[in-house]
């Protein structure tokens, strides 16, 4: 479980997160949704500690992460996997080297054990045969898969995904969504996904938090979202024709 307790964050006097409190549940695919510039990415980065919050605190299973020192945080960070919007793979390393890096740095496994673990993770994301390729030689979908493999290689307890579908075609988006959802269930991890893709919301969203202008505007499940009585959320959700059709169908 990850909990944000009244967190706020501003940059150069501009408030980006305003008093957000929310709890993300273990074993569920938690989605943070909102328009571009609403503060989703800042919230996600504040949860993992890449941004320090101005006030409030973030808890990982009742441990106050915000007030830990850099060294104390390292223990929790080894339990965190994160998939960045652009993949954030190391350009100078091959696929295998990228996925193996956390094992090289933080485990005492033999080389054979590490290679076996990397092969397992790459197989899990259905990406075999690309071991020796560099990120510049991969497609957008393949980059996301390698990023997922790297994120799960250390058996994380918490998985963060920042717009995992951005720049992908609809079919590949569904594959990536389902992969993240399956991994969440399989390993019973706490997954938090930033997205503005309504397909993802309807496919895999188990708990949904809507952020609007830096504030938590709504939270609920995908079953509630189509009937939510919230003007800003409705504007966001029904911006696409497909969602409008879905609402008509449910009524």
């Amino acid at each position: 479980m990850i909990k944000a307790d009244h967190i706020s964050k501003s940059f150069e006097g501009r408030t980006v997160l305003d008093d957000i409190s929310v709890e993300f549940e273990t074993g569920k695919t938690n989605l943070i949704i909102g328009r571009s510039g609403s503060g989703k990415t800042v919230l996600l980065k504040s949860l993992v500690g890449l941004h320090e919050v101005d006030s409030g605190a973030v808890y990982y299973d009742d441990v106050c992460y915000t007030h830990l020192t850099f060294k104390q945080r390292k223990a929790i960070r080894k339990d965190i996997g994160m998939i960045f919007q652009g993949g954030a793979l190391l350009d100078s390393s091959t696929v295998v080297e990228n996925v193996k890096l956390p094992l090289d740095l933080f485990t005492d496994q033999s080389e054979a054990e590490k290679i076996e673990r990397v092969a397992f993770c790459l197989e899990r994301v259905r990406l075999q045969g690309a071991d020796r390729l560099y990120p510049s030689e991969l497609s957008g979908g393949m980059i996301k898969r390698v990023a997922i493999a790297r994120a799960i290689v250390m058996n994380p307890r918490y998985l963060f995904c920042d717009e995992p579908n951005s720049g992908l075609d609809p079919q590949t988006s569904v594959v990536i969504d389902n992969l993240i959802h399956d991994i969440t269930r399989e390993y019973n991890i706490t997954t938090i996904i930033n997205t503005h893709d309504m397909n993802s919301v309807m496919e895999i969203g188990e708990k949904i938090v809507y952020i609007h202008e830096g504030r938590k505007w709504w939270e609920g499940t995908k079953d509630d979202i189509l009937d939510a009585d919230n003007a800003e959320l409705n504007d966001f959700v029904f911006a696409s024709a497909m969602a409008k059709r879905a609402r008509r169908a449910t009524r």
Binding site: K74, R77, K78, M82, L101, L105
Partner: peptide, 17 residues
């Protein structure tokens, strides 16, 4: 600098590096 703007440095930090 490129590693910074493409979030590769953030990725390392998240790993605990």
């Amino acid at each position: 600098g490129t590693m910074r703007i493409t979030e590769q440095i953030d990725a390392l930090e998240i790993m605990g590096v």
